[in-house]
Amino acid sequence: MDVIAIGETMISLTPDQRGLMRNAASFMPRVAGAETNTLIGLSRLGHRTGWISRLGEDELGAKILKEVRGEGVDTSLVELDDKNSTGTFFKEIVNESDVRVYYYRKDSAASHMSPSFLNEAYIAKASYLYLSGVTPAISSSCRETVFHAIELAKRNDVKVVFDPNVRRKLWSEKEAKETLTKIIRQSDIVLPGISEGEFLFGSREEKEIGQACIELGAKLAVVKLGEKGAYYTSEQEERHVPAYSVSDVVDPIGAGDAFAAGLLSGLLDGISIKGAVERACWIGAVATMVTGDYEGLPDRKQLNQQTSPGNKEDVSR
């Protein structure tokens, strides 16, 4: 197994048109979750992935399971809950720069994940354990599950990759900062954005954000800069990587998850950190051109056809 992730995936209900949701005549149901977005991206690129989670034993859960499994992600450790339902949320795309999300996930099946739910042998098979800051924010038992998963990964030499992915509505600022900082201390690779860096470290400077992650214990920090690309730093090197231009941003939700898929794919393929970050920037850009959280993610054939502009390293290598 290349990458295993733990987290909640829900049904996203998107209006049939842009603008305020009150004017929508119908909604399109789509599968959406930070961790499964990344796993699907990796699976499409030919990597072996596994998802650990819980779903309601209902039609929405069945839809999620069918689609995630259909994308080649192993779902053998996804539990079905006959008492608690699958979470949902609405995505309101007012325009390309104003996307609003409304969650209905309280007491969902995934919120009842607990440490006893984890399988050490399964986690031990992976090269990377991928986590986001959403999961520990869902419930106290989910938080305990995340830390236990990290403990199992460390025990078995599995590298921990963490995207802080701050969700302020889910918990207090104090609790969020303490928990996310603690996870960063135990992570090998950290993928913050500028807003997350400002929240956690009080800075919008990518170099300061990256250095703060390294000082906490991360071996590699990659700061996502949106249309400006990315900045990465490690004990050996640091560099800015320019973005790939996008003429028409259709749906920016999920771009960070796509970025993570590109980065991990590059590292699994054994290319340089610079090349992996370039691949991450390209896949993140491609994902914004299609409606949906993961629908626009490329496969290996598309990646192999991609040639790098200017003096960038070939992202397909």
Rank of each mutant, 00 (worst) to 15 (best):
I4C: 13
I6W: 11
E8M: 11
T14S: 11
G19I: 04
M21G: 12
A24N: 00
A25F: 00
S26K: 01
S26P: 02
S26I: 00
P29G: 14
P29E: 00
V31F: 12
A34G: 05
N37A: 04
N37R: 05
L39S: 06
S43W: 00
R48D: 10
W51V: 10
I52F: 13
G56T: 04
L60D: 10
L60E: 14
A62L: 08
A62H: 08
K63R: 12
I64Q: 07
E67R: 03
R69L: 14
V73I: 07
S76R: 02
L77F: 07
F89I: 01
K91H: 11
E92S: 00
E92F: 06
D98F: 05
Y103P: 07
D107W: 08
A110F: 02
S111D: 06
S111W: 13
F117V: 15
L118A: 09
E120M: 03
G133V: 08
V134W: 08
P136D: 02
R143S: 12
H148L: 09
L152Q: 15
A153H: 13
N156P: 13
K159I: 08
K159F: 12
F162M: 09
L170E: 00
E173C: 03
K174G: 11
K182L: 05
R185H: 04
Q186K: 13
S187C: 01
I189H: 11
V190N: 13
P192Y: 02
G193T: 01
I194T: 05
S195Q: 03
S195D: 02
G197S: 02
E198Y: 11
L200H: 12
F201V: 14
R204A: 12
K207F: 08
G210T: 03
G210Q: 01
Q211N: 06
C213R: 06
I214P: 04
A218W: 05
K219L: 01
V223I: 05
Y231M: 07
T233P: 15
S234N: 07
E235V: 05
E237H: 05
E238D: 05
H240L: 10
H240N: 13
V246F: 14
S247T: 01
V250H: 12
I253G: 08
F259V: 01
S265L: 03
L268T: 00
G270F: 06
S272D: 07
S272P: 03
K274Y: 02
G275D: 10
A276K: 04
G284A: 03
V286M: 15
V290E: 14
V290I: 14
T291K: 11
L297E: 00
L297T: 08
D299K: 02
R300D: 00
R300V: 09
Q302M: 10
Q305H: 11
N311T: 12
E313R: 06
D314C: 06
D314N: 12
